[in-house]
Amino acid sequence: IPPPAKKPLTKIVSHLLVVEPEKIYAMPDPTMPDGDIKALTTLCDLADRELVVIIGWAKHIPGFSTLSLADQMSLLQSAWMEILVLSIVFRSLPCEDEIVYAEDYVIDEEQARISGLLDLHVAILPLVRRYKKLRMEKEEFVTLKAIALANSDSMHIENIEAVQRLQDSLHEALQDFEGSQHPEDPRRAGKLLMTLPLLRQTATKAVQHFYSIKMQGKVPMHKLFLEMLEAK
C-alpha cells in the first residue's frame, strides 16, 4: 500500500522553498598560511557574500517589499546574524559536532581550536542539538528564517502595524504547515518558535565575536559586512 499522499504545502511555505538561495562556497585562499587569520578572513568573506544573498532573498518574502525602505533596512540590520546562524545550523544538522559554514568549509572541534573559531563553535553547537532533537525540516527552516527577520525587535520600526501583519502571515504559514504535516504534534509550531531566544543569544555572541575581531583590525572585512556589523 503506498503511503498517503502528503497534503499540499501552504502558498507561503512553497514560495519560501522556491526562493531559497543557492549554496555558496567559502573558497579559502590557498595562498594564505593556515591559522586563525586565514580562518577568520574566510568566514568574513563568506559572510559578506551571504549578506548580499540574504538581502536579495528578503525581497522575495511575501509582504517584505511592501514595507518602507527604512523598515526593510531596520529588520535586516537587526536580524542578519540570526539568519546567517540559522542557515549554518540547518546545514550542520546531518553532521556530528561539526559546523558547516559552507559545503567546502566544515569545521570540527579540533579544527575550530586550531583556527581560533572555538568560541563560535561552542556557541553554535547547542542550537544544532536543539534543532536535531526537533528534526527540523527544510520547510520549517525556511519559514523560521523569515519569521526571525520579521520578528527582529528592531527599535527603529516606523510602521509597526505593517511589520505585525508580516509576522502574522508568516506565523500563520508555520501553523498551517504544522497543522497539515504534523497533526500528531499540535505543539510543534510552538516548539519551533521557542527556539528563537536561543537563536538570538547565539547570534548576539557571534556579532560580539566578529565585532571584537574588527576592533583588533587584523582581519580584512568587506564593506557590507562592516556596515552590518556597525549597525548592531
Partner: peptide
C-alpha cells in the same frame, strides 16, 4: 541612511537572489 549605503543600494536594486 548615508552610513548604510550598501544595504540601501541592494534593497533598491531589483536583482533577485536567484540571479546573484
Amino acid at each position: 541612511k548615508e552610513k548604510h549605503k550598501i544595504l540601501h543600494q541592494l534593497l533598491q536594486n531589483s536583482t533577485s537572489p536567484v540571479d546573484l
